[in-house]
């Protein structure tokens, strides 16, 4: 029998003479790294719990709606539709982005890794754009996954899927457009807040506080004293009417906009041509010319976005 023999050689340091990619590849790598970071990929089980838990939580309402649709049919009024979905999951999305978005940029500054990124062949703007795009990618997955599940569920539970699609195909571009607006919103504000602190908990607390506190603040400033009366129409029908005096008078409709978390949902409703929930804040927002909520949304996204990019533009090690 021959004896197997092997030798290990130390061939020393080897220079790299393969292909080298440019700046776009570096930005792509950073985007991919950010995406993996937010999902906790390549990390322990604990790091995956929150993102995957949130993914399940945002899809869960869609599963519930599909179950209802199997019982009642997809076009029954009782079944929430594509237009209602972002309203249903908006609070979950806001919470998720408040907690997870800071994870993308704060540890880089806190640990000093940003010093290594900024000496790679990218600019500081490339860095922050890649990080922003990473979280936008995840947000898009979150907002669309439930809608896609709803669509599949409605198609499967409809008596005639082809008829259903012919009658409702416009919902698809609508939920894509509205979802993009929701994702842009929940991406930009938390990242902008995160660029001003090196503590993830502070960033999360500020974002949650802004979204949560703005609800009662807007509610308080738009509270009203209403008088209800009944009158009989010429056809003999009884109609109930109300006359409300807002505590902040005519300014109430502007204070209604202070419920910032509602900004993308207002635009979603505009895209779907849907009614609001009918609460006083919705009624006041409806009283505005449509350009006002659009401008307000643009301000809420572009303002923090500009702050985020300005903050990093001046960053050096």
């Amino acid at each position: 029998m021959t004896e197997a023999r092997g030798e290990i050689f130390d061939i020393g340091y080897q220079h790299y003479d393969g292909p080298r990619n440019g700046r776009l590849h570096a930005v792509w790598s950073l985007w991919m790294n950010g995406f993996r970071t937010t999902l906790g990929l390549g990390r322990g089980t604990l790091a995956k719990l929150l993102p995957f838990g949130m993914l399940i939580a945002t899809v869960a309402p869609a599963v519930g709606v599909v179950l209802l649709a199997t019982i009642f049919g997809p076009e029954e009024d009782i079944i929430p539709s594509h237009e209602d979905y972002y309203g249903l999951i908006s609070i979950l999305l806001l919470l998720f982005s408040a907690i997870v978005a800071p994870e993308l940029i704060i540890p880089d500054r806190r640990s000093g890794v940003i010093n290594l990124y900024l000496v790679r062949p990218i600019t500081a703007i490339d860095y922050v754009a890649a990080r922003w795009a990473s979280f936008l990618g995840l947000s898009l997955i979150l907002v669309y996954s439930g809608q896609v599940l709803l669509l599949i569920g409605f198609l499967l539970t409809a008596g005639d899927p082809v008829d259903y699609l012919r009658d409702n195909w416009l919902d698809i571009p609508k939920f894509l457009a509205a979802g993009a607006l929701v994702a842009l919103f929940v991406t930009t504000i938390p990242l902008a807040v995160s660029s001003f602190t090196t503590r993830r908990t502070y960033a999360a607390a500020v974002v949650i506080a802004v979204f949560v506190i703005s609800v009662p603040v807007a509610g308080m400033l738009t509270s009203s004293d209403c008088e209800f009366s009944e009158r009989t129409t010429s056809e003999g029908a009884n109609v109930q009417t109300s006359r409300c005096e807002y505590v902040t008078g005519d300014a109430a409709k502007w204070f209604a906009l202070l419920d910032v978390g509602r900004a993308p949902i207002i635009l979603s409703n505009m895209i779907f041509d849907a009614e609001g929930t009918g609460d006083p804040v919705w009624r006041l927002i409806d009283a505005h010319h449509p350009s006002i909520p659009i401008l307000w949304y643009a301000l809420l996204v572009l303002g923090p976005g500009a702050l985020l990019f300005l903050r990093y533009r001046r960053m050096t090690i």
């Binding site: 590849h25 790598s29 640990s111 062949p121």
Partner: peptide
Amino acid sequence: CLPDAITASEFLGHMAQMSGI
């Protein structure tokens, strides 16, 4: 300037890619 929660192998692979490899 080092991250805590990943392995040296993964970190270096990422840094090499960031420089175009």
